[in-house]
């Protein structure tokens, strides 16, 4: 059986890639997709621990994470749509009204 550590390392790498994506990309939709990537990395970690500790709770938690992620994606994308209508752009650097 593959050691749990491998899965955790993989999870960390995917998470880090997601982080880089969030910080680097300027298209707001792409940023959002990178956030979803981060969530997935975390799901992976949960499941790895669930198997390691031989409990079901991790999987239940992942279930809820996915559900919430779905809801969040729905609302978030709706907001993005509104935002693009208002500002005619998807560049997150243009949305700096809270400056100062």
């Amino acid at each position: 059986m593959v050691p749990t550590a491998h899965y955790l390392v993989l999870s960390a790498i995917l998470f880090a890639i997601g982080v880089v994506g969030v910080l680097t990309r300027r298209n707001v939709i792409t940023m959002f997709m990178c956030i979803e990537l981060m969530l997935n990395a975390v799901n992976l970690a949960f499941l790895a621990f669930s198997r390691h500790l031989r409990q079901l709770d991790g999987q239940i938690f992942v279930f809820f994470v996915m559900t919430v992620a779905a809801a969040e994606a729905a609302v978030g994308l709706a907001l993005i749509v509104v935002l693009s209508r208002q500002k005619q752009t998807l560049d997150v650097d243009q949305v700096n009204e809270m400056k100062g």
Partner: peptide, 17 residues
């Protein structure tokens, strides 16, 4: 300190990281 609040989301995210 004022400069931290730039209004740029990515900047905030970087500080969090």
């Amino acid at each position: 300190l004022r400069r931290i609040q730039s209004g740029y989301t990515r900047s905030y995210a970087t500080w969090v990281l």
